[in-house]
C-alpha cells in the first residue's frame, strides 16, 4: 500500500503523468476529418486516440427495426487490435457490447429522436489507441460528431471520470491509475440541462468519497464542455472568430 501511495501521487501532490489531482489530461478535438461521414470527430484525450463517425439520419436496415414515431439510435464502440498493450482480438468482446450500450444510453437523452421518424442514426466509435477513460472520451467525441452532423440536440454530452487514487479523489483517471487505484467513476453530463446520463463505478468509496467523486467528475465534464465548444467554433467559424471569442472572454 505505501508503495502504491508513493507511486501514484508524489509528495507534491503530482500524479504519475505530472498532473495535479484536479487537472484533466490534454484534450484535443478535431471536427469533421472523415469526409464520407455526415459528422465526425477525432479526439486525443491524454493518450487515447479515438475516431467517431456519425452517419444519418438515414434509412433503417433491416427495415423492421424502424420506429414510426422516432429515430433509431445505434452505437458501436470498438477497439482496434493494435490499440492495447497485448493485441486485442478484433471480434467484439462482451466489454465492448456493454460499453456500446452505455454510450448509446448516455447520448440518447440529448438527441431529439422524434425529429427523425422512421430513420436511423449510426454512431461508430473506434478506439485507435487506448488509455484509461476511453468510454468518456468516446462519448465526448461522439457528441461533437453528432453536432457536426447537424443532428437536432437538446444539449451537448460531456463526459469525464473521477476516481480514488492513493486515498485522494482525483479527476480524469488514466490507465495506470485505473489499474492500480481504488475506484473509477465515469460520468456523462448534459451541462446546460444539468442531467447525468452515464454513471458507473467500480472500486470502493465511502459515502463522503462518493459524493466528492461525483462532484469532481461533474466539474470535469464542465471543463470538457468548454473544449467541445471551442472545437466546433474552430471548425465552423475558423481562427478569426475563435480569437474574437477569446478576446470577449478576456
Amino acid at each position: 500500500m505505501t508503495e502504491q501511495v508513493i507511486h501514484l501521487i508524489d509528495k507534491d501532490g503530482k500524479r504519475t503523468d505530472g498532473r495535479n489531482i484536479d487537472e484533466l489530461r490534454d484534450i484535443k478535438i478535431t471536427v469533421g476529418m472523415i469526409k464520407n461521414a455526415d459528422g465526425s470527430a477525432f479526439i486525443e484525450f491524454g493518450k487515447n486516440k479515438i475516431i467517431v463517425a456519425v452517419y444519418g439520419p438515414r434509412e433503417v436496415h433491416p427495415k423492421h427495426m424502424a420506429q414510426p414515431d422516432r429515430c433509431v439510435l445505434r452505437c458501436r464502440y470498438h477497439m482496434s487490435p493494435f490499440s492495447t498493450d497485448t493485441r486485442k482480438n478484433p471480434a467484439p468482446s462482451r466489454r465492448e457490447v456493454e460499453i456500446s450500450k452505455v454510450i448509446r444510453e448516455a447520448l440518447e437523452p440529448a438527441i431529439i429522436l422524434e425529429d427523425y421518424p422512421r430513420a436511423a442514426i449510426d454512431i461508430f466509435v473506434e478506439v485507435l489507441q487506448a488509455d484509461g477513460g476511453s468510454r468518456c472520451a468516446g462519448i465526448t467525441a461522439a457528441s461533437v460528431a453528432l453536432a457536426d452532423a447537424g443532428i437536432n440536440m437538446r444539449d451537448m454530452v460531456s463526459a469525464c471520470a473521477a476516481g480514488k487514487v492513493a486515498d485522494r479523489i482525483v479527476l480524469d483517471v488514466n490507465d495506470i491509475e485505473d489499474k492500480e487505484g481504488c475506484a473509477d467513476m465515469p460520468v456523462a453530463y448534459l451541462p446546460n440541462l444539468e442531467q447525468v446520463t452515464l454513471l458507473q463505478l467500480d472500486g470502493i468509496l465511502t459515502k463522503e468519497e462518493f459524493n466528492e467523486c461525483l462532484d469532481t467528475a461533474i466539474k470535469g465534464c464542465k471543463m470538457v464542455y468548454e473544449i467541445q465548444k471551442q472545437a466546433l467554433i474552430q471548425k465552423y467559424f475558423g481562427n478569426e472568430i475563435t480569437s474574437d471569442v477569446k478576446e470577449t472572454a478576456q
Binding site: 452505455v102 448509446r104 444510453e105 440518447e108 437523452p109 467513476m185 448534459l190 440541462l193 444539468e194 442531467q195 447525468v196 446520463t197 452515464l198 454513471l199 458507473q200 463505478l201 467500480d202 472500486g203 470502493i204 468509496l205 465511502t206 459515502k207 462518493f210 459524493n211 461525483l214 462532484d215 461533474i218
Partner: peptide
Amino acid sequence: GEYTAIQKGQTGSFTVEEIK
C-alpha cells in the same frame, strides 16, 4: 456501507441531487 459498484442504465437521466 461503502459503495463498490454502480451502473446507470436506460435512456433517461438523473440530476446530481437525485443520485445522492
